[in-house]
Write a protein that binds this DNA or RNA. Structure first.
Lengths: 242, 242
DNA sequence: CCTGAGAAATTGTCATACAAGTTGTTGACA
DNA sequence: TGTCAACAACTTGTATGACAATTTCTCAGG
């Protein structure tokens, strides 16, 4: 960016707009826990009075909060604070030193990364990336009908979603973890055949994730991905016992 | 696909609002490189015509873009594009892919991992791990009083929390990312001194995280860590502008 | 207790008006 | 000609009023 311009002129501290003031105030109250997840914010009318500004200002501030993923306005109902985690994590009282536990740990890390990736993908995906995701989903379903689970196709679907975040870091890390995910799978295909119910469940989970991402529904994408990976965890735990 | 009678209620695909449509369209055009950094967006009046919506809708969309850190509206002048898409276009076509934007991407990934790590740590920490976290926090605060920010101590605090998940995967990945986090810091310490307000804010954020973890408050831990890392993101974005 | 219709509340969108700041043009003047 | 001040034209920021669309509350009536 060397364009031979003058040394940067020091700009006078651009006066805050009313929108920014209201926005900062509301955001502070949300992140400080004054408004908890699920809470309803005061109505636009009340905020208008409270801050002594027009409804225009309040609405733009709320629009910004919504862009930040902090609130979810619902027509006729109100503006609600987003809940980051629908479900608490399982107890996990004891650390088993099995080699399956390694897989469980890995799934836990994947969940952290991919849940967020799904949310970002829902926000930023491009049309081309959408098509890639759809294609990957189709590949997973096609392969599943024939012979159990196609782990490679499954992995490709997850990667397609990670790519749709448009943040290459997610792709890199996930690809790295993928090397540890794929190889060892003598377990699920304990005969090449898994129950039809299980396949149907997996299919439903995948479709729910993809639909949420394509709908741009960040919250649903998070929830769907979390459910999917958490489900995998519990399945592995079950294997761990017997 | 008639799956109407599911145990969980499946929400109908919540109709998109006009604001969301315009927002998505504009964001796509920005992240796809159709509008480059520094470019001026069409005026609100023109966008109003172009999309056939009211100025209210356009303004709320722009407010959302602004919250995303994508544009910077200037009264009297226009709305200017701030940041290129996080690598939506050609792969590394130019070397001017700033280290700063790279840092923002990294922070985004860290947020995904560390937010979950904080939650897990709140649930599973051992007394010894608690002490380690407390010690790390003290080290951060002590170092801060003297000379700006001690990034190494900061990193150690984050690692202590990751260790308290009792999932070694989190530690591994974070340590790997840490190698890219630490080295470059000519920017924040642009004189060795940062504002006292900034240090106080950082201190408060850290303490909020640690308190939540030690309290075993999973939700608060998530929120505090998210706020901390998101705050870092916005700080870097601000640096990116000047 | 349950049901359903209607009122009330709330967000979504439109239209208009003016204030405040920036940019480009113009014209006077040296 | 060159410089600069005033002005006109955009452009964003804010306020106000109105109506539509949707959800929630209320309450009478079975």
């Amino acid at each position: 960016m060397q364009n031979g311009a003058e040394p940067e002129m020091q700009m006078p501290p651009k006066r805050k707009t009313l929108v920014v003031e209201v926005l900062d105030s509301l955001r502070a109250q949300i992140t400080s826990g004054q408004y908890k997840p699920g809470d309803r914010l005061p109505s636009e009318a009340r905020l208008t009075e409270e801050y002594g500004v027009s409804r225009t200002v309040v609405r733009e501030a709320v629009a910004a909060l919504r862009a930040d993923g902090l609130v979810d306005p619902q027509r006729g109902a109100g503006v609600f604070v987003i809940e980051p985690a629908p479900a608490a994590v399982a107890p996990f009282s004891d650390v088993d030193t099995d080699r399956l536990s390694s897989m469980i740990e890995l799934l836990e890390l994947r969940a952290a990364i991919e849940v967020e990736a799904a949310a970002l993908a829902a926000q930023r995906r491009s049309p081309a990336q959408e098509e890639k995701i759809i294609g990957a989903l189709r590949a997973v379903n096609d392969g599943a009908e024939d012979s159990g689970i196609n782990h490679e196709a499954d992995f490709n679907l997850h990667m397609a979603i990670a790519e749709a975040t448009n943040n290459p870091r997610f792709v890199e890390v996930l690809r790295m973890l993928g090397a540890q995910m794929i190889p060892r799978h003598g377990l699920t295909s304990n005969g090449g055949a898994v129950s039809a119910d299980y396949l149907a469940l997996l299919k439903q989970e995948h479709e729910r994730i993809v639909n949420a991402v394509l709908d741009g529904d960040e919250t649903a994408a998070r929830a769907a991905m979390r459910q999917h990976l958490k489900g995998s965890q519990t399945r592995y735990r079950r294997l761990l016992r017997g």
